[in-house]
């Protein structure tokens, strides 16, 4: 299995599976509500002009996340 890494490291076009959420509180819940749980497939689709936030494809919807939030989502690449 590939090593676990933060979602932030994903490059545009790369796909990964969520391994673990280290976020706490309301952000954890918010991401879970949009379907981001262990095993969910995530694709990095678009970076904003300044590189942060980044838009991810999560269960058919495109959601933009800030780097400090996506750093709390650990994923397996590939």
């Amino acid at each position: 299995m590939n090593p676990i890494q933060p979602l932030t490291d994903l490059q545009c076009g790369q796909t990964a599976r969520v391994g673990k959420l280290t976020l706490q509180g309301s952000m954890r819940r918010r991401l879970q509500d949009i379907g981001l749980i262990e095993g969910t497939k995530v694709e990095c689709v678009q970076k904003s002009p300044s590189g942060d936030p980044v838009a991810y494809l999560i269960r058919g919807a495109v959601i933009a996340l800030r780097a400090e939030d996506s750093a709390g989502v650990l994923v397996f690449c590939g």
């Binding site: 309301s26 949009i34 936030p53 959601i63 933009a64 939030d69």
Partner: peptide
């Protein structure tokens, strides 16, 4: 501090 942020791009 800035709170967390999710923005859907419909």
């Amino acid at each position: 501090i800035p709170s967390s942020f999710t923005l859907e791009l419909p």
